[in-house]
Design a protein around this nucleic acid. Structure first.
Lengths: 129, 129
DNA sequence: GATAACGTTTACGTTAACGTCAACATCCGG
DNA sequence: CCGGATGTTGACGTTAACGTAAACGTTATC
């Protein structure tokens, strides 16, 4: 069951970013694909990391924050202290995300109002140019 | 019923930003407080605009996008063409917001898993330093 | 009337997240 | 063997969103 692999333009195409973006993430230490000669070869895990990074970016997280969140998913510790600190960071991140959800819902409510008013105007007294 | 007013440091304090940030928003044309001499005097409407800008920023919108959204709330047109274009922009913005909500929910689900695992580790086989 | 406390303008500095370009390597079909 | 297509490594450029600092005005207060 040899893992499927990807080259850089394949992933760039899939995610709608440039190859420069993917190389930049590597430059910043967010991913570390293996090499075949000089060429970068991405495994499924690399691909997932990129996906997670881009998800973070879509909600306005910095690359640094993206790493922090991804690192949460990858505990690799059994130490009591570290588990507690992990739980703390999970809670911090969660409260930020919940605030963002509230912001989004408020904004959606505003849009709904705008839509209602605009449709009413169209149905009622709107005039042509 | 004379409107309440605010000075710059008052608003900066309330919103947890610097006065520089507020002046910067003005520089970019996002707000336009009236003056009393050289001093900036903010009315409730100005305050609301700042609040909306900061809400946009929290979910990763650029200042430009913030203006676009705020402008949606302020139609001031009865032209059919423009009303249709308004509705289009509302829909575009909504779909971005919904994508963001999905991203946030996915991330929250991930955090919940991490939390469950960490708590299990603490309850079960975690060891002290 | 000196000195804080707050505000103003002007201007240069900074950081993040890439874009852009040059110069070169590799590979592949004709 | 050669010309694209694709990849690589520098290296410098760019934009957004402020930070920071200097130099000055206004007001309050001791």
């Amino acid at each position: 069951m040899s893992q499927r692999t990807y080259n850089i333009s394949e992933l760039a195409g899939e995610f709608g970013v440039t190859t420069r973006t993917i190389r930049f993430y590597e430059e910043k230490g967010l991913i570390a694909p293996r090499r075949e000669g000089r060429r970068r070869i991405y495994c499924p895990a690399d691909r997932v990391r990129i996906k997670l990074i881009l998800r973070g970016r879509r909600i306005g997280m910095t690359l640094q924050e993206c790493v922090e969140v991804i690192d949460l998913y990858d505990p690799s510790t059994n130490n009591v202290q570290q588990l507690h600190s992990l739980l703390d960071r999970v809670n911090e991140r969660r409260s930020k995300l919940l605030q963002q959800k509230t912001d989004i819902d408020d904004m959606l409510a505003g849009l709904a109002e705008v839509e209602t008013l605009a449709k009413a105007a169209l149905a009622g007294g709107a005039h042509r140019q």
